[in-house]
Each structure stands twice: as structure tokens, then as C-alpha cells.
């Protein structure tokens, strides 16, 4: 069994991560993550699933540096994470493209912020636009694109900055079913050709099993890691729609689904 990633060094180490959301009153303070331990290995594609309220998006926000932990730590290559930074690229469910910048300028934004000269950054942005299949809409504005194209542009923007790791927060949740499958295949292709390290949060078990080397199942109230499932399906078999009838895929998906449902049920008791 080949588990790509697990033999490689740890990129992101999450240790005892505990996060509270302050309520309006002290009594309404809520624990969203409670003592979460996660290792993300160099070159790994790690997926996180779980019922709503399990804090999976909070996990992404914390690693991105948008939240301050109550306890515990997050480190990247052994260095403690403090605040947002370009070493951790984020792809948001809402695309988060700047409406006043053309697609090309959106994709080049990270390089502009870094102070790269115009021709240089535009050439690089064009290269990544080509990689995601958007070369011909570089001059358009985000509002002129479909949801799927917007998310491709957002992925290109994140990749252009060449971050150490890519955090993806339910990136395809708002995309229609047909395009979602295509984007899943594309993100796998980018991951393998560019050698990316990805932490991918989703509510779709199919998506998680299709994409991940491992799938982390989280439990809610408060959010914590319930179990970790290794997905030992060879990469060359990960193609829609064929994988839908692959016995290994079905077995793993049903396994993960059962674990998620168990956590969902546990909450209701």
C-alpha cells in the first residue's frame, strides 16, 4: 500500500489546537475546536470532512492565521504560525476575487504585493491562468465569469504566489454538480504536476475520498478529530465517472460516510 505523503516530512503541525468563539455575553462563549492534532505532510493531499458545527472551516481559518487560538499551536516547517501570510495560500468557497480588478490582475495580485515588476508578474499570472484553462478570459472582470471560472481564477491566484501549502475551504460547494467533478479532476492534476501540499475541507464524502491521500473525520460540539481514514486507491484510477463504480472507492466512501453519520447522530443524543 502506497500512502504518498506519510513518509515525507511534516509541513503543518497542529497541536492541541483549541479555539473559542466569543459570544455576545461571556456565558455564550463557544468552544469550536477542542485539542485538535493534525499533521499535514509535504506533498500530501489531506481532506477534512464532518457534519456542520465540527469546526472544519475554523481549522482552515486558524491555519491561515485569521484566528488566535485559545490553546495549542500551529507550525509550518517548525516555525510557529502568527497571523496570515503568503506562505499559506487560501482558496475560499466565495471565490473572494476583487471585483475591481481584471482576472489577470487578480491572479497577479500576490506578486504585486510582493513587489514584482509588472511584465514579470503578468507573464507568471498568464502561465497559471493557462494551467487552469482561463487564458482567454484574462482581460475580463470577475462579474463576467461563471462560478466555476471564478473558482478557477481564485485557484490560479493562490497558486501564482507559490505558497508552501494550499488551504481549500469548501471551494466547490457552490459549483454545479457537473463542473464540480471536472474541477475535482483538475485540482488533482494541478496537485500532482505542481507537487502541491493541500488541506481540503469539504462536506462531501465523495469529494474527500476522491481527492485525498487521507481523510480526517471530525466530530462536532466541540470540534475534534474523530478518526483518520487512509485512501489507498491508486491515483491513476481516480477519474470520474469510472471511479464511481470502483469497489475500493465504494467501500471507503461507505466507511467514511458511516463515520460521519455516527458523529452526526451522536450530536442529537
Amino acid at each position: 500500500m502506497e500512502l504518498s505523503g506519510l513518509s515525507s516530512p511534516v509541513k503543518i503541525a497542529v497541536r492541541g489546537l483549541t479555539i473559542d468563539y466569543p459570544g455576545a455575553a461571556p456565558a455564550e462563549r463557544q468552544r469550536v475546536l477542542d485539542g485538535v492534532d493534525i499533521d499535514l505532510h509535504d506533498g500530501e493531499f489531506l481532506c477534512v470532512v464532518g457534519p456542520s458545527g465540527c469546526g472544519k472551516s475554523t481549522l482552515i481559518s486558524a491555519i491561515a492565521g485569521f484566528l488566535t487560538p485559545e490553546a495549542g499551536s500551529i507550525s509550518l516547517d517548525g516555525k510557529r504560525v502568527q497571523g496570515p501570510g503568503a506562505d499559506r495560500g487560501v482558496v475560499f468557497q466565495e471565490y473572494a476575487l476583487l471585483p475591481w480588478r481584471s482576472v489577470l490582475d487578480n491572479v497577479a495580485l500576490g506578486l504585486k504585493i510582493r513587489g514584482m515588476r509588472r511584465e514579470e508578474r503578468e507573464a507568471k499570472a498568464r502561465h497559471f491562468l493557462e494551467l487552469v484553462g482561463l487564458a482567454d478570459v484574462a482581460a475580463k472582470y470577475p462579474h463576467q465569469l461563471s462560478g466555476g471560472m471564478k473558482q478557477r481564477a481564485a485557484v490560479a491566484r493562490t497558486l501564482t504566489s507559490e505558497p508552501e501549502i494550499v488551504l481549500m475551504d469548501e471551494p466547490f460547494a457552490a459549483i454545479d454538480a457537473q463542473n464540480r467533478l471536472i474541477l475535482q479532476e483538475e485540482v488533482l492534476r494541478l496537485w500532482s504536476t505542481l507537487g502541491l501540499t493541500i488541506l481540503f475541507v469539504t462536506h462531501s464524502v465523495d469529494e474527500a475520498v476522491f481527492l485525498g491521500d487521507r481523510v480526517i473525520v471530525m466530530a462536532p460540539h466541540p470540534g475534534r478529530v474523530a478518526s483518520v481514514v487512509a485512501v489507498d486507491i491508486p491515483r491513476e484510477r481516480r477519474r470520474w465517472p469510472a471511479i464511481g463504480s470502483d469497489p475500493d472507492f465504494i467501500r471507503l466512501r461507505d466507511d467514511v460516510l458511516a463515520r460521519v453519520r455516527a458523529e452526526h447522530g451522536a450530536r442529537r443524543q
Binding site: 481559518s61 501570510g85 475560499f92 473572494a96 476583487l98 495580485l109 504585493i113
Partner: peptide, 14 residues
């Protein structure tokens, strides 16, 4: 929108 603040800051903006 808050997500735009996050996006720009995670691209390393001062």
C-alpha cells in the same frame, strides 16, 4: 465582505 480582507491578507499584504 470579510472574505476579501482575508483573501488580501493571506496574499501577504501589509
Amino acid at each position: 465582505p470579510p472574505v476579501l480582507w482575508r483573501a488580501v491578507r493571506s496574499l501577504g499584504a501589509s
